[in-house]
């Protein structure tokens, strides 16, 4: 049974996807013997329509701004991606494939590899796609976050050496070639003309972190040094003072000035929930 059922389900999914996303209705003569005469082609189209609607709805839910940006071209982009989905999921096994967001998980890679013309027309679209999937994934992440308020506003150097910042695990650093938050402001402005937004390239580094108290994902732009410190804090068990030392390698400020600057930065990172607490380092 399994073999026959497998062949039938595979065939139908192919026919449904072809009709739904490539607009290609099946030719009776192309059907295998066991299906010929038994498949109601008119009713086949009902499922094609339902599958198309459901898939497009899921994608629109994950990429609302990409959809706005693509405008009239959205449907053909989304359709082409859905048509490629069976192959993409086959090549990238994910153990949690039943998650809705996984339908959008391959969109960025697909866009880069297959949508050269659109990427040329909207050079910021690739960054936007990545931004939107990261936002969706952070919003739903099941990472536990233990959060504590940092109340030592003027720590001593000893305290800085003894304590380690805890980086929010529900956080992503995004390196973009365009100012995506500015693009989103433009796209969200309902009064803007319906033409492609003009945006000059500008390298930006964004930190997207989920607030552990209200679960909202907040995105802030940071400079390269801050990005480096966040990355360092995330990848190693270093103290606040170690971070100051890393900063000193990239910054010409005098020692006292630099420490003061770093303390302000650490306070900001706590306020934006990039850091979600501190830990006493053992043996320090």
């Amino acid at each position: 049974m399994s073999d026959r059922l497998h062949d039938l389900e595979k065939l139908l999914v192919e026919l449904w996807f072809d009709q739904a996303f490539a607009g290609k209705a099946p030719d009776i003569d192309d059907l295998p013997d066991y299906a010929r005469g038994q498949i109601d082609l008119r009713r086949l189209a009902v499922y094609s329509n339902v599958l198309r609607e459901n898939h497009l709805q899921v994608l629109q839910g994950i990429f609302p701004r990409t959809r706005k940006l693509a405008g009239q071209e959205w449907e053909s982009l989304a359709r082409a991606y859905c048509l490629a989905l069976p192959q993409l999921t086959r090549n990238n096994r994910r153990p949690d494939h039943f998650r809705m967001n996984n339908t959008g998980a391959y969109f960025h890679a697909y866009f880069l590899a297959n949508q050269k013309a659109l990427a040329e027309k909207y050079p910021f679209m690739s960054d936007l796609i990545q931004f939107e999937i990261v936002q969706a994934e952070l919003a739903e992440s099941d990472q536990e976050v233990s959060y504590s308020i940092e109340n030592d506003s003027a720590p001593t150097v000893r305290a800085l050496a003894r304590r380690q910042p805890l980086v929010n695990p529900v956080l992503r650093l995004l390196h973009c070639r365009y100012d995506i938050p500015a693009l989103i402001d433009i796209l969200d402005d309902e009064s803007r003309p319906q033409t492609a937004p003009a945006l000059e390239p500008r390298q930006v580094v964004l930190v997207a972190a989920r607030n552990p108290l209200n679960y909202r994902v907040r995105v802030v732009e940071v400079n390269d040094l801050t990005a480096l410190l966040v990355q360092t804090a995330r990848d190693s068990n270093c103290s606040y003072l170690d971070l100051v030392a890393v900063a000193s390698e990239h910054c010409a400020l005098a020692k006292d000035e630099l420490t003061k600057h770093c303390l302000t930065l650490f306070a900001d990172l706590h306020e934006h929930h990039v850091f979600v607490g501190s830990k006493e380092l053992i043996g320090s």
């Binding site: 049974m1 389900e9 086959r90």
Partner: peptide, 24 residues
């Protein structure tokens, strides 16, 4: 059926009504 391998179909799709499906 709702998936084909790892492809989640976002729809509940019908099965053939026959003995073999019942067994399966």
């Amino acid at each position: 059926f709702a998936s084909l391998g790892d492809l989640y179909l976002h729809e509940l799709l019908p099965v053939p009504f026959c003995k073999e499906t019942i067994e399966h």
